[in-house]
Design a protein around this nucleic acid. Structure first.
Length: 428
DNA sequence: TCTGGGGTCCTAGGACCC
DNA sequence: TCTGGGGTCCTAGGACCC
């Protein structure tokens, strides 16, 4: 019987590595990439990790380290990362017909049908090709379940002697046990901070402890999810490969502001432009939304300032994907929850009750001209087309504003090397 | 004094992930 | 001065039904 073989390919320090591809001077230097608004550290080079900088730490809290070690910091360049990610994924698709794109920098491949090959060598081939064609470093973990493949990838990253590829299927039980007794249970996919703490109280500290734990106790203490994780650690597949991404059940769009916002007008612009983005995503997956949520809040970290947070959910008479309708409803909701006098830090919207466009229930009592929906559908299609062709926001609603003073800061963003002609990388 | 049993649906909240 | 954004799944509890 052919053993199941699942590979997890994960790019190392993905955002940092993308920056380095186009700025080789960043190689071997401490580099971080920041979250929206340059708020938190979301990607760290190995040099920065070695300095003890934690994932997600507010950037202003590490200013001393930044100066001391000349850490170079970049705003997130999502256009660049998304484009590089697409390239990675299409290269990986050449290595297996069964691919699950798990996140922007991670991908599962089912290699079971290649089992007659030396899969460790195959993993090396994958790694070399991504590096040669794109300049990005990746690690490969191979095992019989997705949870074990994630763990194998972790092992490949942490142990240089594996040379970036770890195939658990070929290791002896003794070797596996030795590795699993060194790794913290919290490293396992599905074990977060809370569960790690509770496991620790039960005397379960390492991956090996978790794998060998009493299944019934895990089920009763933590539920079916962690039980599945333990099964997967034992090599019993419980989580299947999702080759086709299911349509999103909810779509959110929100941003913190780059400056203090007091006026309703600024909030209206922000909500309008967030809703525009969300509606584009909605149409891309051929869905309709049946309800929306709008929320606004002040900065919860500024405890001395008056705080206000409010959200409202509004059902729609008819499910829709029309930007104009969605924006109008969102603005009604916003006006309802807005209170003057507060310093707002963030606004956001959500699309809910999402259904496929084929499942639409028309409004029984609608008296509207049946021609109108068809016309506005054409208009949306036209808008999407122009914006895809000519660049984002070429055509947009006036309610999203022109100046957009509230927009997030991105002072440290690198050029869009791969997606704008004017910003193409030039070598001299 | 004594107060059924079983089922569905919805929502809120908690946990996790990258 | 400065603290991200976008998702999923599961469970418990309440409302409601017969």
């Amino acid at each position: 019987m052919a053993a199941r073989a699942i590979a997890l390919v994960d790019c190392n320090n993905f955002y940092v590595s993308c920056e380095r591809v186009f700025q080789p001077r960043l190689e071997h230097k401490p580099v971080v990439v920041l979250s929206n608004n340059d708020g938190c550290v979301v990607a760290r080079s190995s040099e920065v990790k070695a300095l003890g900088v934690k994932m997600g730490i507010p950037f202003f809290q590490i200013q001393d380290l930044v100066r001391q070690h000349k850490i170079m910091a970049f705003s997130s360049n999502y256009a660049l990362y998304a484009d590089m990610s697409n390239r990675v994924m299409s290269i990986l698709a050449q290595f297996s017909p069964h691919q699950e794109i798990y996140s922007i920098d991670e991908c599962f491949l089912d290699l079971t049908s290649f089992n007659r090959l030396d899969l460790t060598a195959y993993g090396q081939q994958i790694r070399r090709r991504i590096h040669q064609w794109l300049g990005l470093p990746v690690c490969v973990g191979i095992a019989s379940t997705k949870t074990l493949a994630k763990l194998a990838n972790h092992i490949a990253k942490k142990n240089p002697d594996f040379q970036s590829v770890c195939n658990l299927n070929t290791l002896s039980p003794a070797k596996t046990d030795a590795l699993f007794s060194r790794i913290e249970a919290g490293e396992v996919w599905g074990v977060g901070r809370r569960i790690r703490e509770r496991l620790s109280e039960m005397g379960i500290h390492r991956v090996k402890d978790l794998r060998d734990a009493e299944l019934k106790a895990i089920r009763s203490q933590f539920g079916v999810v962690l039980e599945r994780t333990v099964m997967e650690l034992r090599g019993t597949p419980c989580i299947s490969l999702e080759e086709i991404a299911p349509a999103k059940q909810q779509i959110m769009s929100s941003r913190s502001f780059g400056m203090p916002v007091f006026a309703l007008k600024d909030l209206q612009e922000a909500v309008s432009s967030y809703m525009t983005r969300a509606a584009e995503k909605l149409r891309r997956q051929h869905s309709l939304a049946g309800a929306i949520t709008v929320y606004i809040h002040t900065n919860p970290h500024k405890v001395r300032e008056p705080q206000y947070q409010k959200s409202i959910t509004l059902p729609l008479v008819e499910s829709t994907d029309n930007t104009l309708t969605l924006v109008n409803v969102a603005l009604i909701g916003l006006e309802y929850i807005y209170r003057p006098g507060y310093c707002y830090q963030k606004a956001g919207i959500m699309l809910l009750n999402i259904i496929h466009a084929d499942q639409k229930q028309p409004d029984l009592f609608s008296t509207a001209n049946p021609q109108i929906p068809a016309k506005s559908r054409d208009m949306m299609r036209c808008m999407d087309h122009i914006n895809a062709l000519m660049g984002k926001n070429t055509v947009r609603l006036a309610s999203a504003g022109i100046e957009q003073d509230w927009k997030a800061r991105t002072d440290r963003k690198s050029p869009n090397y791969t997606t704008r002609w004017e910003e193409l990388a030039i070598t001299t």
